[in-house]
Design a protein around this nucleic acid. Structure first.
Length: 290
DNA sequence: TCCCAGGCGGTAG
DNA sequence: CTACCGCATGGG
């Protein structure tokens, strides 16, 4: 058992981080803490006032480093929030509502597979499928009397046939996962190269080569794994909130993507990805209680 | 029963 | 280039 403690943390709220739609492997415990798997580590995160307590089990890697990296602790969110709050009242309100959001730096491979699964799917089912993939093709880790599984490596997942994947409930996404796993394993698309690329556009171009990765999924990967905070993934929720706030088109579906992209670019000061997360969380959570 | 869910790939115009 | 359709599956 290892632990790491952060004190005086602003901008670190567990619900905001784990339930804002960027990640799929964290589950709430009865005491309000969250437990999840990061790479080969199982980690429980608990918040007491402004203190964040991480406990867990890391297999051979630095516990502290894993956390600092994944939670992107080097980034000070006060700057983001100050800049964006000044844009308009909507952002100000959404930031007040989701003040503890942080955008994670998730493993690239895991992020790719997860968001391919997200296509035409809903969050509870996405989570279920990812757990099944991990149970069948990941490695077992025991922690606090419970069993957890790492996200499968490309090597391990390549043992699954299309039929195996279909049987896990992937539906029509089975072939996409199969093909993408192969492409990555054979380095037709080299993830390490992508990580070291300088420009967002060349990263996106590489990601789009993968089966099942279109514009939306690519942008999610860029934002949730590669820290490209200027990208603006457009899904139904973002379309909805942007239309409600800024466009006011009667027919929401007629609001086109370019129009949204342009608006976000002009408005959000090169931080449209960050702005998007606040707006997304605000819109979605408010919808739940309404 | 029908509709929808953080889209994508394929095809037609 | 844009417009549409089919796609597996489970929950409301």
């Amino acid at each position: 058992m290892e632990n790491y403690i952060l004190t005086n943390q602003e901008s670190f709220n567990l619900e905001h981080i784990f339930e804002c739609g960027q990640c799929f492997r964290w589950n709430k415990e009865e005491d309000g803490s969250y437990t999840g798997v990061i790479n080969n580590s199982v980690i429980n995160v608990k918040k007491e006032d402004t203190t964040i307590i991480f406990t867990g089990k890391s297999n051979g890697v630095s516990f502290e480093h894993t956390i600092k990296e994944y939670f992107d602790l080097a980034t000070d969110y006060r700057e983001y929030k100050n800049k964006l709050s000044a844009v308009d009242e909507y952002l100000k309100e959404s930031i007040a509502f989701g003040e503890g959001i942080r955008i994670l730096k998730q493993d690239l491979w895991e992020c790719i597979i997860s968001f391919i699964i997200s296509a035409n799917n809903n969050i509870p089912r996405i989570k279920k499928i990812i757990e099944k993939l991990s149970l069948n093709y990941g490695e077992k880790i025991e922690f606090n009397g419970k069993t957890y599984y790492t996200f499968p490596t490309p090597e391990s997942l390549s043992n699954a046939t299309v039929e195996d994947l279909r049987n896990l409930g992937l539906g029509f996404r089975d072939k996409r996962i199969y093909n993408t796993t192969k492409m990555i394993l054979e380095k037709q698309v080299d993830l390490n190269k992508i990580k070291n690329m300088k420009h967002t556009d060349e990263m996106r171009e590489e990601l789009l080569k993968l089966d099942g990765v279109g514009p939306k999924v690519a942008d999610c990967i860029l934002l949730f794994s590669l820290k490209r905070e200027d990208v603006f993934p457009i899904d139904v929720w973002v379309r909805r909130v942007m239309n409600d706030l800024y466009i006011h088109n009667e027919d929401e579906e007629k609001v086109n993507k370019k129009q949204l992209q342009k608006l976000a670019e002009e408005k959000f000061l090169g931080l449209s990805g960050i702005a998007q997360q606040y707006l997304f969380y605000w819109k979605r959570e408010k919808g739940k209680s309404a």
